[in-house]
Design a protein around this nucleic acid. Structure first.
Lengths: 195, 195
DNA sequence: TAGTTTGTGTACCGACCGTTTCAGAATGCA
DNA sequence: TGCATTCTGAAACGGTCGGTACACAAACTA
């Protein structure tokens, strides 16, 4: 063997994620990635092959460290009846919290969806899969909240919530007020009729 | 006086709009804008001052030639009861039509919302105003469709439709199927109860 | 026709882009 | 200690970026 890696890959990827998240893939310059990660370009290219390789790693980190932890309660078995509402409430809070990266940069993947990088098939698939994952989780949450309702109605509701979350992410950067409004719309749809 | 302009400004701006729409502001290179408009950079800079100046003109053209014509029936007085449904149906058709720019590039302004250009205050305001204009028009449409319902309920419905349209635009590029699904969700919300 | 104003083409500016190369420093194993 | 392997720093690659300078062609007014 030879010398071992002195930096923690996970930490580096997380730092790169911040840059991609704030700037988008195209505008994230290699010097900016060097500065954020503390790595020289040489090390970056040695470890990740290309800017794109680092981006792909950052996307995985985004899914694993940001998206999925928030969705986890919706994947429990059984799902708590309040889990969907908790999810939306938590997201709402994040979008409102000043300085929070989700608040001023939205969602890495929703942003990618409207950017030039979206012309890449693999990225397109990743974003579509992300949406499907979100939809599936919200579906479980809706089922747990309204177990008595017809499946078609629960599906309709889950579709609506998914779209509302996407729309919130799409507009946070320019109009946080209506982004929060989208989530509030979703929360109203999930209200239980008075007993 | 001296020589007069030999090109039609409106045509040039429309050509530039196509480039910005497909590529986004940052990735729209000056050479690409030259090719699309048929103008030399010198003429572009003489007439519009900067790439950004041309972009601003393109945004106005987008609002005037693309957004507002589609919204026009919703601004009529009185609004036809079917106008909202027609709007959503027409948009749905455009998002499905292959080769249509809205189908493979979404909405210029929703895309801008997740891009680096969204850090510019003027652009932020423009996109927020665009959303407000869409919301207002859909609000009129919803009012015309359900004149008997309470105002709060009509507002809720208009908010939902607006978010659903935004979410459709946000994802067309990567997942046209669920984009259409968002519009279908909106159309279902607008169904009239059987008489 | 003379003079003035304005549009247009060519060439070039410095800056930055992502990527590659290569030498050397650092650390593992035998 | 010596070798092997890997990480790291510096420098340079060709290419493209948005923007500018300037000369000239064009077309209007008088």
């Amino acid at each position: 063997m030879g010398r071992t890696q002195t930096f923690e890959t996970a930490r580096v990827v997380r730092a790169a994620l911040g840059v991609f998240w704030r700037s988008g893939y195209e505008a994230a310059s290699v010097p900016a990635l060097e500065a954020a990660t503390g790595l020289n370009r040489s090390s970056i290219y040695h470890s990740f092959g290309s800017k794109r390789g680092l981006f792909d790693a950052a996307v995985q980190a985004y899914l694993d460290d940001v998206v999925r932890p928030r969705l986890r309660p919706l994947l429990a078995d059984p799902v708590a009846p309040g889990a969907v509402v908790d999810y939306l409430t938590g997201l709402r809070a994040a979008l409102v919290r000043p300085g929070e990266i989700q608040a001023d940069s939205g969602c890495l993947l929703v942003n990618a969806s409207g950017a030039p990088i979206s012309r890449d098939d693999a990225v397109r698939q990743t974003v579509a899969d992300y949406r499907a994952e979100l939809r599936a989780a919200l579906g479980r949450g809706v089922d747990a909240r309204f177990p008595g309702r017809a499946e078609s109605e629960r599906d309709r509701l889950a579709d609506l919530c998914t779209s509302l979350v996407v729309s919130a992410f799409a507009l946070v950067r320019v109009d946080p007020h209506s982004a929060v409004g989208s989530l509030d719309s979703a929360l109203m749809l999930l209200e239980r009729p008075r007993s």
